[in-house]
Design a protein around this nucleic acid. Structure first.
Lengths: 123, 123
DNA sequence: GCAGTATTCAACCGTATGGTTGACAACTAC
DNA sequence: GTAGTTGTCAACCATACGGTTGAATACTGC
């Protein structure tokens, strides 16, 4: 798993326990002990999951004495949606261009004298 | 890395090479050979990355003889944006509710006789 | 059929991941 | 201070991941 920010964040969400932690934290901050109660694994394992989320920037841990409330940094989800939307849109646009090409080919079929343009390869 | 669909898809995108492959494929289908030329790793390694993307449903491989054109299934990006948007929005709403609570506390400060409601814990 | 090209399969290697347990540290409260 | 609670650190283990190389398979074109 590579070390750049986007990779770390995608990787952090590639685990159902960590996604559940994020979902849980949208309802409000919580301590490790509170969170760990919901899972059938050791408290230390949950703490490791939180460390992964922290290194991805998705959470921060407060320092309120012995209790360290975990806080979700939901803004860090945006780069992911940005990336996903960018390429989904780009693929969609290409699909529309392909539709146009096919329509043009159909037109060529109907009027065979029309010049044919190269249908593949964009910048 | 757990085996559910969402986990597989997030995990598939948690690698810069695979994200680059997805980006590349938004421009059009390509064969393994064409794709592998762009990376400083063996053709077999790129093929493994494609297998990961395939198991996540993000690509399909055609069967046109010896050449097997790789096709992006951009629609499979949607469940990810859905998940991200859902929780980003949920966190945002909570933040707005928190703002409301703080405003209310400020009002209580100004008019101390107003009854105080429990500011924490939602469903 | 044969030569060449495109892709996959298999074995292997180093490192990262997700989990465990046990010991330690830090803070709270009496 | 001493106890108790909360969280972290460290060592360890099994398995998965990302890469390599070498061999095998599948198709094309003569």
């Amino acid at each position: 798993m590579s070390t750049d920010q986007l990779s770390r964040t995608f990787a952090a969400l590639a685990d159902p326990t960590r996604r559940d932690l994020v979902a849980r934290l949208t309802l409000g901050d919580a301590t490790l002990g509170e969170l760990a109660g919901s899972y059938e694994m050791s408290l230390q394992a949950v703490s490791k999951h939180l460390t992964v989320l922290e290194r991805a920037g998705l959470i921060t841990r407060g320092q309120a004495g012995a209790r360290r409330p975990v806080h979700l940094e939901a803004a860090m989800l945006e780069p992911l949606t940005d990336w996903l939307e960018r390429y989904r849109r780009q693929a969609e646009q290409r699909f529309q261009r392909l539709d146009a090409v096919l329509a043009e080919l159909a037109a060529d079929e109907a009027y065979p004298d029309t010049a044919r343009r190269n249908p593949e390869e964009e910048q």
